[in-house]
């Protein structure tokens, strides 16, 4: 069991901001969908640092990302 970031796509799609993607330390992990204009997380690669939550909630006050617990096989 460990934490990964999960994007609330409905909320995220309102903004078209992409700042979380630009500040994720991991490559090819927090991605951006060109057509839907939402960020999405490649879960197996997320290390759960929550910098994206800091960017989205603390800096931008948009609250579109939260950390969720995943289990092996999820």
């Amino acid at each position: 069991m460990y934490y990964v970031a999960e994007v609330n796509e409905a909320d995220c799609a309102k903004y078209n901001c992409k700042q979380c993607v630009l500040f994720c330390p991991e490559p090819n992990t927090l991605m951006y969908h060109d057509k839907n204009h939402v960020a999405w997380v490649n879960f197996p690669r997320c290390k759960g640092c929550a910098i994206c939550v800091y960017v989205c909630s603390d800096l931008l006050k948009r609250n579109c990302i939260q950390m969720v617990m995943v289990k092996a096989g999820d």
């Binding site: 992409k18 993607v21 630009l22 500040f23 994720c24 330390p25 991991e26 490559p27 090819n28 927090l30 991605m31 951006y32 060109d34 960020a39 690669r45 290390k47 759960g48 640092c49 929550a50 910098i51």
Partner: peptide
């Protein structure tokens, strides 16, 4: 970033490491 395949792949640096960033 986040819209193309990046050159650097998964690596064992610590979670939240800003050197990795």
């Amino acid at each position: 970033l986040g819209q193309f395949k990046e050159l650097v792949e998964e690596h064992p640096m610590c979670a939240g490491c800003f050197m990795a960033y």
